[in-house]
Every structure is written in structure tokens, then in C-alpha cells.
């Protein structure tokens, strides 16, 4: 037999209540707050606090050697927006992000569709396709730098032997080609992530939908266009969102390929933040750049979520 305990509200009311036997117990509201509190503390300490501190630092000039701080209001932002290096870095960040993501999504979609087919060695291929994603960025960067080395690298050697060039080219030492090869490296490393995401989604598309369409005389393109793609779209949007955030913030691959050079030719915003903070030692400016990045990413994320909601609605 269950004994029901009557409770009465106390002065504390919403947070504590008194049982009939006189003891106190916490209310559901209190329990909810207690449950959520660890997460709030952790997010506050490790996400919100650093962002706010960075935001606050963007209003100061900070001496790198002595760390003495002087409040300068908006002057860091004014200097930043007046600096061509910032706008060039923003442009390169957008080029890097857009180029890598577009190719990642296109190639990743193609590979995932291929690996969704009943092919011999499919499982092996699925394992191998993950390989670049598993390799640390530093290993990839060093390997690519070695491949592209003008005097020792296999790429130049092969091009010379095939007669495509008459003298070695330092691809990562040229402002016109360095970013291109950084983008190629980024595509090579991160496309597998898109493949994993899309492949997982492909496997849950109801087969009977495709079969019904085929019975009704739909071509393979029509099946893809009207069934597969709408089903994939929410995942594509989420993948786009995640990859956009990650590629926009990508530091290690970009930096390790060409260290931001030559002549800042591979300096994207995260690399610029590093340069400002540790090389130029303008910590306030670095903080201002980071704050601008946060705003850009939040705006992008909002746009993606709008698109995601529409894609989900269309699917339903």
C-alpha cells in the first residue's frame, strides 16, 4: 500500500515544501534547477566566461610584455575595420570556408551515394574513405609540405619528369598558389566527415519509397531529386552548419600548411588572431577579431537554422 504524503507550501514556497510529517523536501522546480546547474556552471565557466572575457579584453590596449591594460573603448574595432589585413583575412576565410565546404559536400555526396550501392569491397572502401579524417592535421600538413617541396617533393619531381614544368615551383611559397593547396588539403582531410553523415542518413531512407517511385516509372535522377535529396537535406544542412563553423574556425590545417604566409597569403581570421596575439602582440586587437568572428558565426548559424527548419518542414 502506498502511503501518500501530504505537503504544504512554506514561506520558501517554490523551492522547498513541508511534508505533513514536518520534514522539508525540494520542489520539482528546485530539482530542475539543481539538475541543470552543473551544466550551466560548466558552460558558464568554459564557454560563456572566456567569450565574455575576450569581449571585454577587446576594449583594452594590453601591453604584451607587462600586460598593463588601458581602456581604449572602441578603438580596437576601429583599427581593425580600418586595417586591410583584417578584410583580406576575412575574404580568405570566406573563400577557404566556401571552397572547402562546397567541394566537401559535392564530393562527399558522390562518395556516399557510391558507398551506399551494393559493391564488392564496400566495407573496406568505407573504412578507407575515413582514413584522411583520422590523421592528425599536423601529420597531413607536414606530409603535404614534403610532397610539394620544390627540391625534394614528389609533386615537382613528377611534373618535371613529365615535362609539365621546366623548373621546380614552390607552391606554398607563392601567394597565388599557397591558399589553393591549403584548400585542397582541407578538402582531402574533411570530406570523409560528410561521407559519414550522409551515408548514415542514406541508410534510413525507406526503401519502399524508392521502389514505389521506380514502379511508377521514375528515372534514377527523379528518384534522387524527389526522394533521396529531400531526405538528405536536413542532414546536409546540419553538416553544412557544423562544417561551416569548423572550417571558419579552422586553425591547425591552415596554419601548419604555410604558417599564414607568404605575405599573409594564407592568413585566415583564426590565423590572424594568433598573429595579432602572439606575433604582433596586440592582444586587444586579437580579442576584437575573435569577437567579430563570434558575431559572424552566430549570424551564419541563425541562417542555417532557418534553412534547416524549412528543410524539415518540406520533408514532413
Amino acid at each position: 500500500m502506498t502511503v501518500m504524503t501530504k505537503t504544504t507550501k512554506t514561506a520558501a514556497g517554490k523551492w522547498l515544501r513541508r511534508r505533513e510529517n514536518g520534514q522539508f523536501e525540494i520542489t520539482d522546480r528546485t530539482l530542475a534547477v539543481l539538475m541543470i546547474l552543473p551544466a550551466v556552471i560548466l558552460i558558464g565557466a568554459f564557454a560563456i566566461y572566456p567569450v565574455l572575457q575576450g569581449f571585454a579584453a577587446s576594449f583594452f590596449r594590453i601591453e604584451s610584455a607587462t600586460l598593463a591594460m588601458t581602456f581604449t573603448g572602441l578603438s580596437n574595432y576601429k583599427d581593425l575595420f580600418g586595417d586591410s589585413l583584417f578584410w583580406e583575412s576575412l575574404g580568405r576565410t570566406l573563400v577557404w570556408t566556401a571552397a572547402t565546404i562546397l567541394v566537401q559536400i559535392s564530393v562527399g555526396l558522390g562518395i556516399s551515394l557510391l558507398l551506399h550501392q551494393e559493391l564488392r569491397g564496400r566495407n573496406l572502401a568505407r573504412g578507407l574513405v575515413l582514413f584522411p579524417y583520422l590523421i592528425p592535421a599536423v601529420v597531413i600538413a607536414v606530409t603535404w609540405r614534403f610532397i610539394l617541396d620544390p627540391t625534394l617533393g614528389v609533386f615537382n619531381r613528377t611534373m618535371l619528369e613529365w615535362g609539365l614544368i621546366d623548373r621546380p615551383i614552390a607552391f606554398l611559397a607563392s601567394k597565388s598558389t599557397a591558399l589553393l593547396f591549403v584548400i585542397i588539403g582541407g578538402i582531402w582531410k574533411y570530406t570523409p566527415f560528410v561521407v559519414i553523415m550522409l551515408l548514415a542518413r542514406l541508410q534510413v531512407i525507406p526503401v519502399d519509397l524508392e521502389e514505389a517511385a521506380q514502379i511508377d516509372g521514375a528515372t534514377r535522377w527523379q528518384v534522387f531529386r524527389h526522394i533521396t535529396l529531400p531526405w538528405l537535406m536536413p542532414v546536409i544542412v546540419i553538416t553544412l552548419l557544423l562544417r561551416t563553423i569548423w572550417m571558419f574556425n579552422e586553425f591547425d590545417m591552415v596554419y601548419l600548411f604555410a604558417f599564414g604566409g607568404p605575405l599573409f597569403g594564407t592568413t585566415t581570421l583564426p590565423v590572424l588572431v594568433r598573429y595579432l596575439a602572439f606575433d604582433a602582440r596586440q592582444i586587444g586587437m586579437a580579442a576584437a577579431t575573435s569577437s567579430v568572428m563570434v558575431v559572424i558565426l552566430m549570424t551564419m548559424s541563425w541562417g542555417y537554422f532557418q534553412f534547416y527548419n524549412r528543410a524539415e518542414a518540406n520533408l514532413n
Partner: peptide, 23 residues
């Protein structure tokens, strides 16, 4: 309200930390 207070507290904490001369 609680969340706003928390944010305000964190913001104040961050400002305090930033303004503290590291010397």
C-alpha cells in the same frame, strides 16, 4: 532572471579579471 543575473555576474567577473594588472 536567474540566467540574466548569472550572465551579469560572469560579465562582471570577466571585467574584474581583465582589469586586474597582471603584475
Amino acid at each position: 532572471t536567474i540566467f540574466t543575473l548569472l550572465l551579469a555576474f560572469i560579465f562582471l567577473a570577466s571585467c574584474r579579471a581583465v582589469q586586474t594588472p597582471s603584475v
